[in-house]
Design a protein around this nucleic acid. Structure first.
Lengths: 300, 300
DNA sequence: GGGGGTCACAGGCTCTGACTGTAACCGCCG
DNA sequence: CGGCGGTTACAGTCAGAGCCTGTGACCCCC
């Protein structure tokens, strides 16, 4: 018989109480069973661990040698089980996050701060990336989750976190800049600056649908990728564009944000559909709680 | 079910081979049993440790977290069992030795050296003491074993190691100093120096028997405890005495050792009869081997 | 389509780890 | 000195665990 953890537990209990009867009660087994288990352990070790008689129970010299050893084994086993269980609960391990550049300004700080506070032992990395890198990274297991805007692709799961108004972005002094609100159709005659079609086709398919529904096809004066570039072009008077309201924190001068009626933009958390990881579920919970308690889009 | 070491052993085996079939063969159990045991462990942990299909077996993330932990637990358990087994074999622990002062000069160096070489991890202490301290120390669990001369007392076990001639110790120039050998009766007319009767009554009972058998009662000129004192008094011409031959190494001048016919002194190892300890048995074996391979009494 | 290999399910068997009952021993008290 | 209380160990029993064998499900290859 090779000693098992159970034997060590029984041994330590007897050693601590110096009584089979009391130890058995603590262990919730019959005293006779405990006596047998200790006898088996002694047989396996080839030595008595206790001297016992009707007056009491005492550790032998070998028993005194073995007691700290047994405790150390039990402690180590406990540590191992805890490590596994913490990993199961997503409390340890790593989490590699990507933030779409246009969401990073308002999402990264509060999400990273809140997650680190809640799960201090998870190794978290976060980076702002373009949409193509973001999607490729999720698919190629370089990122575990990402904060981004839909639509994405079918093999990524998403969960909406935040919804915010979409605004027409006009150069300062534009005739429509003073309006409290606009409709997309109001901008039919304007020159437009938009991202390149190749930057993320699913978005452009949606843009096409939106413009069609508004009854016009935008005259694209110039294309540029990245929100800061678009804002710069608008400020320069090259054209108008359409962005989520939170983008207003990326440029302070030369542009005016006017809400577009009925148009809202979502920020979502995305993750690969094929990998179900607790640490990602934990992230989603933290992000959802965050989103429900403060207006993340105002925090940028 | 709380995981046992068996489960960890099974898990590590599968993780190392990435095959239930191969691991089962190594563990000498059926593959189906191994599959069940791993399933039980996964249930206990609440997570899959392996992804497996007909193409092969791979560790999951949780499995990767748990593998080094499981190995550490098994290693710690191994260390604990080894520690216990080494203690059982008397390879660790402590050994407190006493040497009767008159045997220390020739017994202590070789015995201590040999024992430490054979059992480097036993904490050995050794001290030269008088007979009363030696016996009291054995009885009061201050010494584990001792090297001494008989007779002792009934509650101490002894084992003879060495036998050597007993010699008449005469002052240089004594008329009998040139003899090759003497009988005790030859010294009937001499003044004697002996140890005090209280120093160790069992010895003096033996001395009384010896003198009676030789047909005289010694005229004790002076009593002193300790072999060096007796040698000094003999050298001073106060009287003669009788000592084991090995005592000759304790004083170089002023005394002559002449063998006494038919008289021999034993050196024994002694230990308490009530405590049977492997480390003491090991000591006895080392001492007996030493005694059989060299003349310890000449080594002084 | 058949063969080979892997892991999991199903059913069965042996033995273990628990149970209860009680024996053996010791100390204490009347 | 006998009875009582308390402790540990022995004895007999039983449910379930850990192993077994047989085989299913699935995949890959020829």
């Amino acid at each position: 018989m090779t000693p098992e953890l159970r034997h060590l537990r029984y041994f330590v209990a007897v050693a601590e109480h110096l009584s089979f009867t009391v130890a058995a009660r603590e262990l919730h087994i019959a005293q006779q069973s405990l006596s047998q288990q200790i006898a088996a352990l002694e047989h396996a070790l080839g030595a008595r661990l206790f001297d016992r008689d009707t007056r009491g129970t005492r550790l032998t010299e070998i028993g005194r040698v073995f007691l700290p050893e047994a405790r150390a084994v039990l402690d180590r086993a406990d540590t191992a089980l805890q490590a596994a269980r913490r990993a199961v609960r997503g409390e340890t391990g790593r989490l590699r996050l990507a933030f779409l550049a246009s969401t990073a300004n308002y999402m990264m700080p509060p999400v990273v701060r809140a997650f680190r506070k809640r799960y201090p032992d998870v190794e978290l990395t976060a980076e702002a990336v373009g949409i193509a890198d973001l999607v490729a990274g999720l698919r190629e297991d370089r990122y575990d989750a990402a904060f981004t805007r839909p639509p994405l692709v079918d093999d990524l799961e998403t969960e909406a976190l935040v919804s915010e108004p979409v605004c027409a972005v006009l150069p300062t002094g534009h005739p429509l800049a003073g309006r409290a609100g606009l409709r997309l159709a109001d901008l039919a005659a304007e020159p437009w600056v938009l991202t390149s079609r190749e930057s993320w086709p699913p978005w452009h398919r949606k843009y096409d649908d939106d413009f069609r529904a508004a009854g016009f096809e935008p005259r694209v004066a110039q294309r540029a990728d990245g929100v800061p570039s678009l804002l710069g072009l608008v400020a320069a008077g090259v054209g108008v564009t359409r962005l989520a309201r939170s983008a207003h924190s990326l440029r302070r001068t030369g542009v005016v944000f006017v809400p577009l009626a009925g148009d809202r933009a979502e920020t979502v958390v995305a993750w690969p559909a094929t990998r179900d990881r607790q640490v990602v579920r934990n992230l989603r919970a933290v992000a959802a709680e965050l989103a429900s308690s403060i207006d993340l889009t105002e925090a940028g």
